[in-house]
Computed example of a mutant assay.
Amino acid sequence: MNVPARIAALLLVLASATASAGPEVLLFPALGRPGGVTLHGRVLADTPHGSTALSRNLRRLASRNWKGARVEVSFLGVSATVTSGEDGDFQVTLPPPHVGPFPVGGHEAQARVPGASASARVEIVSDTAPFLVVSDFDDTVAISEVTKPDKLVTNALLRDADTQKVVPGMAGFYGCLGADSGAVPAFALVSGSPVQFGPRVSAFLSRHGFPAGFGLYLRDLGPDTLSGYKQPLIRSLLQRFPHPVVLVGDSGEKDPEVYAQIREEFPGRVRAIYIRDAGKSGDATRFQDMVLFKDASTAAEHAMGAGLARRTCVSTAFPASVPAAGTAVP
C-alpha cells in the first residue's frame, strides 16, 4: 500500500472514531485594508481530540464538516451572518463602519456558531506598506520533506507545532524585511498545508518568532486542488493589495514555476523571488532571475542590498554575512 493509500485508510478508521465535544469553528488570520476585509474559515461538526500528535492530526483531517451552519462574523463593530458551504467553509467581506476606515494594525475578529466560537488576528495593511510578502510554508519555513514521502508522513502526522522543525534563519530573514525607515511589509502565507492545520500553522509561526500578522491561505484538500491551487490565491491577493510583492518558496515542488507565472501575469509588481534549495535544483532554468539559497543569510544579504531588508536588523540577525558599511553587495 502506498503512502497516500495508507493515510486514506487511517482517515477512514478515525472518521468513525473522532471524539466530539460539540462543533469547532476555524477562523483564519487574514489581511485587510482600511477600506474592507475578507474573513474566511470553516466549521467542523466535531471537535477533534487525541492524546498524541498522530491521533490529533488524523482526527483533525477526518473531522466532519458542518454544512449549513449559521456563522456570525464580527470585526471592529461590523458584523454579518453567513451560511457555511458544502465543505463547512465560509467567507465574508466586511466594509468599514460609517465612522471611518478600519485602523491600520492588528485587530481581533470573531466567528460564532451555536455551541462554538473562535477569534483570529486581522492585520489591516497600510496603503503605504513597502510591499507584500507571499510565502510558502512546507520546506520554506518548516521542514516537511515533501519530496520524501515517508518523511513527509512523519512530519505531517507525527509532529505538531511544538515538534516540527523550523528552517534555520527564516524567522530572522522575515523579521528583517522592510525599509530602513522602519516601514514593515505585510505577510501572507499561501500553502498546500490543509485548512484543517490552520491552528497548527499559526502556532508554529508564533513559537518560532515569525512576524505577527500573517494572513493564512491554505489548501482545501480535494481532487480539484492536487495542482494549480496557489495561483488563484496569489492572484486574489495581488488584486486586493496594490503593493509590490516579494515571493518566497522552495525548489522541492512547483514554487519556481508558480512564481514565474505570477511575475509574468503581474508585470512590474514582483520585486524579488527567493527560493530555498530543498532539492530538485539541478536545472538552473527553473530559477531564472530568482535568488536560489541554501542558507537564510544569503537571502537576507541579497534583500538588504536590494533595499528590501533593514541593514541594522540583518547585521544583528546574521552578523557573519553582512559586509562592512560602504562595501558593495553583489
Rank of each mutant, 00 (worst) to 15 (best):
A9V: 00
L10E: 13
V13W: 02
A15K: 07
A15Q: 10
S16C: 08
A21F: 01
G22I: 03
G22C: 03
L27P: 03
P29L: 11
P29H: 07
L31E: 06
L31Y: 04
G32W: 13
P34K: 06
G35C: 02
T38N: 02
T38G: 01
D46H: 13
T47C: 04
T47A: 05
G50T: 07
T52S: 15
A53G: 04
A53N: 13
R56L: 13
L58Y: 01
R70D: 09
S74T: 12
S74A: 15
L76R: 12
G77H: 05
T81W: 09
T83C: 07
S84R: 05
G85C: 05
G88H: 04
G88I: 07
Q91E: 15
Q91P: 00
P96S: 08
P97Y: 11
V99H: 08
G100L: 11
G100C: 08
F102T: 02
F102S: 00
P103D: 04
G115W: 02
A118F: 03
S119E: 10
S119P: 01
S119G: 15
S119V: 10
R121A: 14
R121W: 13
I124R: 08
T128N: 05
T128E: 12
F131N: 06
S135G: 02
D138L: 10
T140R: 03
V141W: 05
I143Q: 14
E145S: 07
K148N: 13
K148F: 02
P149H: 02
V153Y: 15
N155I: 00
N155S: 13
V167N: 12
P168R: 08
P168A: 12
G169Y: 06
M170D: 13
G172A: 14
G172I: 11
F173P: 05
Y174N: 10
L177C: 08
L177P: 01
G178M: 12
A186E: 06
A188S: 10
V190E: 07
P199W: 00
P199E: 04
V201M: 10
A203H: 01
L205D: 12
L205H: 15
R207W: 03
F210S: 09
F210T: 02
R219N: 14
D220P: 09
G222R: 06
G222Q: 07
S227P: 01
G228A: 13
Y229K: 08
K230E: 02
P232Y: 03
R240G: 00
P242Y: 00
P244V: 04
V246D: 08
V248I: 14
K254T: 14
D255Q: 11
E257R: 12
A260T: 11
Q261N: 02
E265G: 03
V270E: 05
V270M: 07
Y274D: 02
S281L: 01
S281D: 04
S281A: 15
G282A: 11
R286E: 09
Q288M: 06
D289S: 14
D289W: 04
M290Q: 15
M290V: 01
D295Q: 15
S297E: 15
A299P: 06
E301G: 11
A306D: 12
R310C: 11
V314L: 09
T316E: 13
A320F: 06
G326S: 01
G326T: 04
T327D: 05
